[in-house]
Write a protein that binds this DNA or RNA. Structure first.
Length: 259
DNA sequence: ATGCCCTATGCTATAGGA
């Protein structure tokens, strides 16, 4: 089973680009972030025509997440469980009913800038709620993955110029500590499990010629429970799509599981 | 120090992103 995650930065503006990638990548499941639209105007038929069922958790203008799946979905849940007061659409999860079922959680973690301020407070609070859910999911002892735009640069080797990010919400010590608290519950960072090289990124800013200079950061991640990590066969970043016409500032990342 | 670029929005700007 191939499961991909992709922050599309507006699904309506990105639709031709996403379909081009989808027809090339042929994932079984896609976790989308920043769809930037309500459920009513999500272009679902474009995906249904390609054999995907579509579940969205959108909001007007910003944020928004979705799951596309070629397998049936069960246990669908919108919003981070235990965080019911959060009105921002940043979490959707479901059980993918494949020969080996996989539980997938699609997340769009808050950016947190500027620092200090209410947005950074919101980010850290969200990460604590996320950690609570991550702990619950581990205790189920199922094959589960948590994937999406984490807005976290875990280590210096995950940025071309880490010194540029030292005071940024994506890289501050408190952000990275919170990331490690989640990881250290017992999750595997799928990309790092497969690839120890540096200079592999999932985001390049639209500004300052970041793509042309490979001035990127690795902020889109797959975290796997031990049962899911046992199924891991591959994890790749589809960096080439960043060079296509009208790209998102993020590129897709995917895992291949023996499921 | 700030904007650069991009998407969405009752839109001749503004907010948010990272």
């Amino acid at each position: 089973m191939k499961v991909a995650s992709y922050n599309v930065n507006g699904i309506r503006a990105r639709l031709p680009h996403v379909l081009r990638w989808l027809d090339e990548c042929l994932p079984d499941v896609v976790l989308l972030q920043e769809i930037k639209c309500t459920d009513e105007i999500f272009p679902r038929s474009e995906f249904e025509n390609r054999g995907y069922s579509v579940e969205t958790h959108g909001e007007k203008q910003r944020n928004g997440v979705a799951i596309l799946s070629r397998f049936p979905l069960e246990d669908l849940s919108r919003g981070l469980p235990g965080n019911n007061e959060d009105i921002q659409a940043r979490w959707i999860e479901a059980l993918v009913v494949a020969p080996r079922p996989i539980r997938v959680c699609c997340l769009y973690l808050p950016n947190g800038n500027p620092v200090p301020g209410s947005k950074y407070d919101y980010k850290l609070e969200w990460m604590e709620k996320f950690r609570g859910r991550a702990k619950e999911l581990l205790e189920l002892e199922e094959s589960t993955l948590l994937a999406g735009d984490f807005n976290v640069i875990p280590q210096p080797e995950d940025a071309m110029s880490p010194e540029d990010w030292e005071s940024d919400a994506l890289y501050l010590p408190e952000t990275r500590e919170s990331w490690r608290r989640i990881l250290n519950l017992g999750y595997t960072d799928a990309f790092r499990a497969m690839d120890q090289t540096s200079m592999s990124f999932t985001f390049w800013d639209f500004q300052r010629g970041a793509w042309e200079r490979n001035n990127g950061i690795r902020i889109d991640h797959f975290l796997l429970t031990p049962q899911c990590a046992d199924l891991l066969q591959d994890c790749q970043i589809d960096r080439h799509v960043r060079g296509w016409e009208k790209p998102s500032d993020h590129v897709p990342i995917w895992v291949k599981l023996d499921a």
